[in-house]
Design a protein around this nucleic acid. Structure first.
Lengths: 207, 207
DNA sequence: CGTGAAATTGAGCTCCCTCAATCTGAGTGG
DNA sequence: CCACTCAGATTGAGGGAGCTCAATTTCACG
């Protein structure tokens, strides 16, 4: 039943929006490959980057609050994803207790994640935040079976900065420092993690 | 059915924990009166304040992630609350589509709230954060029918600071500045908001 | 190649943290 | 009733981390 409700194999080119703030919550999404940026735009026109979506991760859960999406999600590289229309999902929630628990679990995880991230970022300095960001990314890639030590950043320094509450110069300087200390190899957006332990230590004890 | 599942009229004295990190998620809670502090303790022993719970607000939703609570919640003043045991809630989710939607809505709201807060706090300076905190508190009190311009802070300056990622001195200085500018009257923990508009403006355009 | 955006690096300055002293106020016991 | 006490709050001075502004340098693209 669930299988029949999922629309698979959808594609999106770089830069195009998967959802927009204010749109009715018509579906949940799960990214299959590629990555995306979740962000919103303030009244003053500044972009606030909520986070980045990696393969295997769900998008659109905040929509449960009001039935509308509250942020923009757009592809940072060519994206393939699944779409689960709410019209099909809702009847299944009645019949499948396992699916119900899974959705609640996903929401709970997203909530816990968001709160943890906020507290961690609020307490540590700039280099710690960048280290934390890299360690987090590394861990999420590993969970998906991708290399946790060799990866390519699909987002710009400015995106990272806006996500961490820093300026792009500070992010760049932090990366340079890590490179100088021998913890990373950085070549533009390609990252090699040489000392994962150093990053997690600086990042404030990520699991 | 739902009424029968809710345990009402429970009490808790100041300083006592409503839940502890790691406890199995046995129930959801709704605060009726009083207030509480949500926090966790890092490996180094530092306290991270996730937020504060006011009357009418639910606690324990993060537990859906793993079936265990992930933070401590303790009373800042004598607390009365309702308790909804998970054992009774789960069967009801099968039968009552309205309740199901309500739980999903609560989770979605908590998630959206948390993400919004993180982005807002990351981008603004110390005084802006304190202003934002007061404006947020004011709005939540108003939603509960309490005065949005005259209230008593149940938390210490240190708690506010740890919540906002500042030091207690900086919080104190921000409050003093607001007092000097004529936006607030501050006497220890009693706050009178004289110019709500100024606070919301500084706080980064809260609704 | 050439072109423009993205990234790096530098210099000066501001804001917030740190350390420290003082002040206030609630609760206690004489 | 009041002095005492002690935690919480305020205020001040000094220093450092990160922001701003600006100049190169590198990279991705046609």
């Amino acid at each position: 039943m669930l299988e029949a409700a999922v629309q698979r194999g959808r594609q999106l080119p770089t830069g195009v929006a998967l959802m927009r703030a204010g749109d009715p919550m018509a579906a949940l999404f799960v990214v299959r490959s590629g990555s995306a940026k979740r962000y919103s735009v303030t009244l003053q026109g500044a972009e606030q980057v909520h986070g980045f979506v990696l393969p295997g991760e769900a998008v659109g859960l905040e929509g449960f609050a009001s039935g509308r999406y509250t942020c923009e999600v757009s592809a940072l590289e060519p994206l393939s994803y699944c779409r689960v229309p709410m019209r099909r999902l809702e009847p299944l929630l009645e019949r499948l207790p396992g699916l119900r628990r899974e959705i609640l679990r996903l929401l709970g995880q997203a909530l816990e994640e968001s709160q943890r991230l906020r507290c961690e970022l609020a307490q540590i300095d700039a280099r710690g935040r960048v280290a934390h960001f890299l360690a987090d990314l590394s861990g999420r890639l590993a969970r998906r079976g991708l290399s946790p030590v060799e990866f390519r950043l699909s987002m710009s320094r400015a995106d990272i900065a806006r996500h961490l509450g820093l300026t792009l110069e500070t992010v760049s300087r932090a990366l340079s420092t890590f490179k100088r200390e021998g913890w990373l190899r950085v070549r533009a957006r390609d990252i090699s993690v040489l000392r994962p332990d150093a990053l997690t230590a600086l990042g404030g004890g990520l699991a």
